[in-house]
Computed example of a mutant assay.
Amino acid sequence: MKAILFRQPGPASVLELSEIPRPQLENPDEVLVKLKAAGVNPIDTKLRQRGTFYPELMPAILGCDGAGVITEVGSEVTQWCVGDEVLFCQGGLGKRSGTYAEYAVVFSHCLARKPQPLSFTQAAALPLVTITAWEALYDRAQLQPGQRVLIHAGAGGVGHIAIQLAKLSRAEVATTVSSTAKAEFVKTLGADLVLNYRETGWQGELLAWTGGEGVDVGFDTVGGATFSETVALVKPYGQVVTLLEPGPETNWKLARRKNLQISFTLMLTPELDNLKSAQVHQAQLLQQAIGWVFSDYLHIEVAKTFPLGAVADAHQFLESGQGLGKIALVI
């Protein structure tokens, strides 16, 4: 089969289109999926730059998101059949092979069912960002109707889903963007207050929107200095959820003074630590989100697609920050 091999850290050009043997089922609860599309995420570019979590297992196949058709099932798999169309988030971290390939072996409990009208490209773009946004806003922050939430980078993969999930919970949403085009995009998703972080004074505009109190929930999808900035914009007894490790400049005294609840969201933990029950939970919430997509309550924006062999171009496009929503590979 064709696959993109990653042999050593470096620029996008290190990703090689190669011919390798088709993977085989190794456990009775696995299925073989013929992939039709794969999502491209920031975690992929970070692993490409610095190396995978398992450098001793190189070369690796990157890609956490996938969608395709089941072509083989293990002896203990009862809920899935050959021909079923599925999507999933599994692999791509250096231990299990990822989705930058024509086939992938997937544990059956990680699968969600793809509705027929949903394209494979949309399906492959959905899992990682949707699970991440869901866990951050619903599981960690437990966002409530009427609360005000600040979502950073609202036009990005996680951000554009987070805006919609927040609106579905009847919260009021402020979000940061970096351009006029991105501002117009997030407005179509329901954002109540759009803040261009390249313009001075946006923090004051946010505080004015909350009557000087600050938001109930701050969702940091950027990390570094943005985390400290978010702490300053959340009201006392509020919540901050972050996807990344706070930087050394973090004002923890202010967070403590305001009695903030700080939460972390890393949706890859179940994959890294082999937590089957957590993987089952993620597949279930993904299935619920798919129902919302099918009912037009939730929209997955695919900014651009690339063929498998042009994965280096896909990485460069993602790193440029130009796109709205997600990027996908068509296999």
Rank of each mutant, 00 (worst) to 15 (best):
G74N: 03
F107P: 15
I131V: 15
Q90R: 11
I163W: 03
V149L: 02
I151M: 03
Q116Y: 11
G156K: 00
V82T: 10
E135H: 13
V86R: 04
G66C: 05
H160Q: 11
F53E: 10
G94E: 07
R170K: 13
P117S: 13
T52C: 08
T132H: 03
G98E: 04
C81K: 15
C110A: 13
I161Q: 00
G83V: 08
Y138C: 14
T132F: 03
T78V: 13
Y100F: 15
E72D: 13
K95S: 13
V173F: 01
G146A: 07
G51V: 09
P59M: 09
A124L: 08
P127H: 08
V82S: 00
Y138E: 14
L47Y: 10
Q122F: 07
Y100M: 09
G146D: 04
S119W: 03
V173R: 01
A67D: 00
Q122M: 12
D44Q: 10
E102Q: 15
H152D: 00
I161G: 00
R50C: 00
G156Y: 00
K46F: 10
E72I: 09
Y103I: 06
M58E: 05
G154M: 05
P115N: 08
A125H: 04
L118E: 10
T132A: 04
F107K: 13
A133Y: 02
M58R: 14
S169A: 15
Q122P: 02
I70R: 03
L93M: 13
T121D: 08
T78D: 12
T78P: 05
G66D: 06
D139A: 15
F107V: 05
A162N: 02
S169G: 11
R50T: 14
K46W: 09
W134F: 14
G98D: 10
Q49M: 12
G74K: 01
V106W: 00
T130A: 14
T52E: 01
P59N: 06
G92Y: 05
R140V: 12
P115E: 05
G83F: 08
H152E: 06
G51M: 09
V86P: 05
Q164C: 08
Y138W: 13
W134T: 01
G94F: 07
T99Q: 02
I131T: 12
P115R: 05
Q147F: 06
G156V: 00
L143P: 09
Q79V: 10
R113K: 15
V77P: 04
E85P: 07
W80P: 11
L47V: 08
H109R: 12
V73L: 05
G66E: 02
S97Y: 13
V73W: 01
V158E: 00
E85W: 06
A162K: 05
C110K: 09
V82Q: 06
A67R: 02
G156C: 04
A166D: 11
F53R: 12
A133T: 03
E135F: 09
K95G: 03
A133P: 07
P55S: 06
T99G: 09
K95I: 11
K167Y: 10
V106S: 04
V149A: 08
D139R: 15
V173L: 01
V77R: 01
K114Q: 08
Q116L: 13
L126K: 01
V129M: 11
K46E: 12
W80Y: 14
V173C: 02
A136Q: 08
M58D: 01
H152G: 00
C81R: 14
C110N: 15
A124S: 12
A155K: 00
